[in-house]
Design a protein around this nucleic acid. Sequence first.
DNA 1: CACATGACCTAAC
DNA 2: TGTTAGGCCATGT
Length: 98
Amino acid sequence: MKLEGTEFQIRVWKEILKIPKGFTKTYKEIACDLNKPKCARAVANACGKNPFVPIIPCHRVIRSDGHLGGYSGKGGIEMKKKMLISEGFFNFKGNNIK
DNA sequence: CACATGACCTAAC
DNA sequence: TGTTAGGCCATGT
């Protein structure tokens, strides 16, 4: 597969792809891995603007507060929640399970 | 180059 | 505890 886009975006996607199944990573963590702790915004932006949404587990990326933040895919935030729960990771806010 | 946007974060009220 | 304001970064127009 050929990740096309900006270097920053590619780095972000790679970090997301490094996330093991059943685990989640926060935008801040990813930004920190890029040596730019304040780049959480750009990271989130890259996730939502990435043209490879289906191949990138962006649903495993959540906010630092435990909130899912958002999802550009079909179903939006709801689908994101569903996927996380489906992977057994229902430890975030708004999971309706508590 | 400057302005506007966004799935953010932190601090303050 | 919930909401508001400011700041920070990258991207697109």
